[in-house]
Write a protein that binds this DNA or RNA. Structure first.
Lengths: 353, 353
DNA sequence: TAAAGTGCCGTGTGCGCACACGAAGTTCAC
DNA sequence: GTGAACTTCGTGTGCGCACACGGCACTTTA
C-alpha cells in the first residue's frame, strides 16, 4: 500500500530502456520498435502507471487557449453574470495549468455584437470554445465558421447541432416545467385554473419558454387532471398590461390556483399582484436574479427554480480542459440540477464558493 | 496582459540577489538581512508574485497525512456511503499533491468501535482530521486526545466545541425544519393538523431531530398559524407501531394535512401508509437513501430534503488541504444547501460527478 | 594574530516529465 | 564495399521551485 507512484524512470529500468523511449511510447510519438513498444505498454499496465500531472504540465510549457462567448449581464437581465463568475473561477484555477481564457460577452439585444465578438475570438485561433448560442440562426452561421477551424466546443444554456460538440451543459427545461407543475398544483383541486406568462423582451429564451410550458402542461395531462390553463405572451415592458390581464382573469368565476412564469421576469408579475393587493395566489418563476430574490423574501413569490448557472460556467471550462488537454471523455449531455428555492432555503444558494 | 507569471528568478534578478535569498524570504526561513528582506518583499508585492503551485508541490516532496473518522454505511442506514464517496473523490484529486488519507469507518451502533478506530488513527500522527462526531460524549473524550496532539480538524454533520476546529460543514437543521414546514403547510387551512415522527434506532441524530422539529414548529408560530402538531417518538423496528399510531390519528375528527419525519426513516411511514391504503396525505422526510428514493418515485413520499452529503465529505477534505497545506483561511461554518427533492427533479441529484 | 564563531548569501541538485539532439545500428543502392 | 538514408534509441537540458551545503566577510575570543 505504501509504494509510491511509479514513474517513467521505474518503467524504463524495468523494461531495460531509457526514459526517452518510454516517453515516446506514452505519447505515441513513434520511433520505437514494435517489440519494445509492446513490452513497455505491458509494464505500464502492470504498474498501473499514472503520469504525474504536476510534473507533466510543468515540463510541457504548453499554453491552451479557450474562448468564451456568452451574453453580457445587464441591469435588465443580470442572469448571465452568474455563468461568467463560474467561468472566471475555473479560469483562475486552471491558470497554473497553462490555460488562458479569452472571454467575450455580447449584448442580448444586439445580433451584430454577437457576430463581431465571435469573429474576434476566432481570429485568435483558440483550442476550444464555450458558447451560449442564444441567437439561433446567427449562431448557426457562427458554427459553420467554427467547423472550418475544426474547433471543439461546449454549449451552455442552449444546445445546437454541431459536429465537434463536446458537451451540452444546461437545464432540462421540460423537466423543470414538471417540477413547476407539482409545486403549483400541490393541494389544489383537480380542476383548478392556472395562468402562464411568457414574458420576453429579447428574441432568445423562446426555446426554454416553450419547453417549460410543455413540461408544465404534460404534468397535468399525464395525471388526467382537467386543469384550466390560460397562456399569455407579454412583450411590453410596463406593468399596465400585466395588471389588466390579472384583473380580467381574477374577475372570472374560476379560482386561480397558481401563476407560472416561464422565465426570470416573474418579479414583474409579483409587482403587479402587489399593486392589486393580491397575496394568496401561488407564484413561481425562474432564476435567482436580485429582483426575484427580493420578492421571494417578501413572500410575493413562492418558488424560484434555479439551474446553477455559476456551476454551468465553471463546468463548461473544466470540461474543455479535461477533454481537450487531458484527453478524457465525457457524456455529451450534462443536465444541471433543478433547484427549488423558497424564502427558507435561499441563503444556501447565494455564495456558491 | 500577455506577460507571463513572474517567477522567483525574476524577483531575484530585479533585487540583485540570488534565488536562494528570495526563497528564504518567501518561506520566512531567516538568514536574510532586514534591508534585503524588505527590498524583496516590496518587489514581490509590486510584481504580485504568485508561487507556481505545480512546481512548488513537485519540488517539496512533502507528504500530508489526513485522517478520516466517520460512520460506516450499512444496509440499515446507507446514508454515510455518500460522504465517504466525497472523501474518496477528494483523496484521488489530492493524491498528486502528496495527500494521503487514512480512512476509518465505525459502526453506528458500537461506541467501542468508534473509540478503537479513533486510537488507530491518532497513532499514525496525522496532520489533520475529518470527524463526524455522532457519539456525543465519546467524541468529547476523543477530542481531548486530539487536543493533546494539537490536531487541527474539520467537523462534518455535527459540530462540537474544539479549540483547533477549522470548519464545520453540515446542515442548518433548524432551517431545514422551516423548509419542511413551508412545503407541508402550503395551501392548507390555517388550523391544519400535522404529525411529526422521530424515528431512531441509534443514539445519534437526536440533535438534528430536535432542531428540525424546532424549525418546523417555529415556522407556524412565527406566522401565527394555530396548527395542531402531535409528535411521536418511535424506537421499534417493525411497522405495527406505526400503523396503529396512524390509524388512531386518522380516526380523530381533524384532518391530517401532512406528516413530517425528522430523519431518513420516512420510508417506514410511507410503507405504513401504503399498507393502510392512504394516498392523500403529504409526506416529507430527509435524505436520498435508496428506500426513500423508491417511494418518492411511487409518489408515496412527496418531498425529500437532502443536504449534499457527498459534497460535505469532499469539502471536508478539500478544506483540510487548503487550510493546513496552503495556509488559507476559511469561514468556521459552512452550511450545506437544503435541497428539495421531488419525483420530478430527483434524477439531477443522483450522479453528482 | 590565528582560530573559532556568526550573519548573510550564492550555488548546485533534484522533484517527474517533455522534448531536442545526436549516436548507434541497420538497410539499400551502386 | 562504401556512403546515404532510415530506424531505433540514449542523453541532456529545462520547467519553477525547495532546500542542503558551503563560502565569504566580519566579529569575537584566547
Amino acid at each position: 500500500m505504501r509504494n509510491k507512484q511509479s514513474r517513467i524512470k521505474d518503467i524504463a529500468k524495468k523494461a531495460g530502456v531509457s526514459t526517452g523511449t518510454v516517453d515516446r511510447v506514452i505519447h505515441n510519438r513513434g520511433e520505437v520498435s514494435p517489440s519494445t513498444r509492446k513490452k513497455i505498454l505491458a509494464i505500464i499496465n502492470e504498474l498501473d502507471y499514472q503520469p504525474n500531472l504536476l510534473a507533466s504540465t510543468l515540463a510541457s510549457q504548453k499554453l491552451h487557449h479557450f474562448a468564451v462567448l456568452i451574453p453580457a449581464g445587464s441591469n435588465h437581465n443580470p442572469y448571465w453574470e452568474a455563468p461568467l463568475k463560474g467561468v472566471i473561477k475555473a479560469g483562475e484555477e486552471l491558470k497554473a495549468y497553462g490555460v488562458r481564457l479569452d472571454i467575450q460577452t455580447f449584448s442580448q439585444n444586439d445580433i451584430n455584437d454577437f457576430r463581431q465578438k465571435g469573429e474576434v475570438l476566432l481570429k485568435n485561433k483558440p483550442d476550444g470554445l464555450l458558447l451560449a448560442p442564444v441567437f439561433f440562426s446567427e449562431s448557426k452561421k457562427f458554427l459553420i465558421k467554427c467547423q472550418q477551424h475544426d474547433l471543439p466546443l461546449t454549449f451552455i444554456d442552449t444546445q445546437l447541432d454541431y459536429k465537434r460538440s463536446i458537451r451540452f451543459i444546461g437545464q432540462n427545461s421540460c423537466q423543470s416545467g414538471h417540477v413547476a407543475a407539482r409545486l403549483l398544483g400541490m393541494g389544489n383541486p383537480k380542476d383548478a385554473s392556472y395562468l402562464v406568462f411568457n414574458i420576453t423582451s429579447e428574441k432568445d429564451q423562446l426555446y426554454h419558454f416553450t419547453e417549460r410550458y410543455k413540461g408544465f402542461k404534460d404534468y397535468f395531462l399525464l395525471r388526467n387532471l382537467p386543469v384550466n390553463i390560460s397562456v399569455h405572451d407579454i412583450h411590453t415592458q410596463g406593468i399596465e398590461e400585466l395588471v389588466s390581464i390579472l384583473k380580467i382573469a381574477l374577475n372570472k368565476n374560476e379560482l386561480i390556483a397558481g401563476i407560472f412564469v416561464t422565465g426570470s421576469k416573474v418579479y414583474r408579475i409579483a409587482r403587479a399582484l402587489k399593486q392589486l393587493g393580491i397575496q394568496n395566489i401561488r407564484l413561481l418563476g425562474f432564476d435567482l436574479v436580485p429582483q426575484n430574490m427580493e420578492l421571494l423574501e417578501e413572500e410575493m413569490i413562492d418558488f424560484l427554480i434555479s439551474q446553477q448557472p455559476e456551476e454551468q460556467g465553471y463546468q463548461g471550462i473544466q470540461t474543455l480542459y479535461s477533454v481537450i488537454v487531458q484527453k478524457q471523455t465525457v457524456d455529451p449531455v450534462k443536465y444541471s440540477a433543478i433547484d427549488i428555492i423558497t424564502r427558507e432555503n435561499i441563503s444556501h444558494y447565494l455564495n456558491c464558493s
